[in-house]
């Protein structure tokens, strides 16, 4: 039966909407935005001369590491917590999933008013007799952590769901056998639970890590472009503040290359699996 035609619309659609834009991005990136010559490295020279681009690249490489680490710890903690018997389980679970369910832009704008120097967090600190804090000050380590933390807060529910799914799939007898052998709770977790969770953890790290590489809205809304730049917001800045399509395309081509390189381990897993 020639059923393959069923996949044709999808494949054609994806091809058109991935191949054409990528081709156009490369054309734009290698075109001189002033004279229109192609090929030209002028746009790459523009961004390479810009200190902001290099900051964006560095942040873009470091941010996913911190964000994913935070998510993993929080997600694993939550999964272990929800593997226990809890009262009002459904309600609690809905509350845990809530940050992920809020539209991203809603979550980020309210977080900005929480973290601004005279925001709700500083207000709470002052109420407790402490000093107000500015966690979004441009270029500071604090703002780097804030952006990672906010992104982790919003996406932890995903990691939580992946890990909880794997956790409840572990047969109860394994844990009981270990308990009978007299293993402490910590040793049981370290030597029994964690190795069994490994595939799910690896999957979560790869998925979320690749998502975090193209992070856009969180640094844009929380710190503005210059505060904690990443490649996506840098490209947006070239596009909207300077109207330089070539430089914007060049920066996004760099990001695309980073993403493709980072996804190699993922693709390798697919082949070996």
């Amino acid at each position: 039966m020639r059923a393959w035609f069923l996949a044709v619309p999808l494949v054609v659609y994806l091809a058109v909407f991935l191949v054409f834009p990528v081709g156009e991005a490369v054309r734009l990136a290698f075109t001189d935005s002033v004279s229109g010559t192609f090929p030209s490295l002028e746009s790459f020279r523009t961004i390479a001369d810009d200190g902001l681009f290099w900051r964006a690249l560095r942040v873009n490489l470091a941010l996913p590491l911190l964000a994913v680490a935070l998510e993993l710890v929080a997600g694993l903690g939550l999964a272990l917590l929800f593997a226990e018997r809890l009262p009002a389980r459904r309600l609690l679970r809905a509350a845990v999933l809530l940050p992920f369910a809020l539209p991203e832009i809603v979550f980020l704008t309210i977080l900005r008013s929480i973290l601004t120097p005279r925001g709700y967090l500083s207000g709470a600190l002052v109420g407790l007799g402490a000093q107000p804090v500015d966690l979004l000050a441009p270029g500071t380590f604090a703002s780097f952590v804030s952006v990672a933390l906010v992104d982790a807060w919003r996406t932890t529910p995903l990691v939580f769901l992946i890990l909880l799914g794997a956790l409840v799939a572990i047969p109860g007898e394994i844990g009981q056998a270990a308990r009978v052998d007299g293993a402490s709770a910590w040793r049981r977790f370290w030597h029994v639970t964690l190795p069994l969770l490994r595939p799910a953890i690896v999957a979560a790290v790869l998925l979320r890590g690749l998502d975090a590489l193209r992070i856009f809205a969180a640094p844009l809304v929380l710190t503005g472009v210059e505060g904690m730049p990443v490649l996506s917001t840098y490209a947006f800045h070239q596009w909207s503040d300077y109207g330089d399509d070539g430089a914007a395309a060049a920066a996004s081509v760099v990001l695309a290359v980073v993403c493709v390189l980072a996804s190699v381990p993922l693709l390798r897993r697919r082949i070996t699996a």
Binding site: A7, F20, F216, S263
Partner: peptide, 22 residues
């Protein structure tokens, strides 16, 4: 098909949005 679809899922938005706008 998986491979194609996952590629669509992983490609950075900005790298599609900028050329797509043009």
């Amino acid at each position: 098909l998986d491979g194609v679809v996952v590629a669509a899922r992983l490609f950075p938005t900005i790298a599609i949005a900028v050329p797509l706008a043009v």
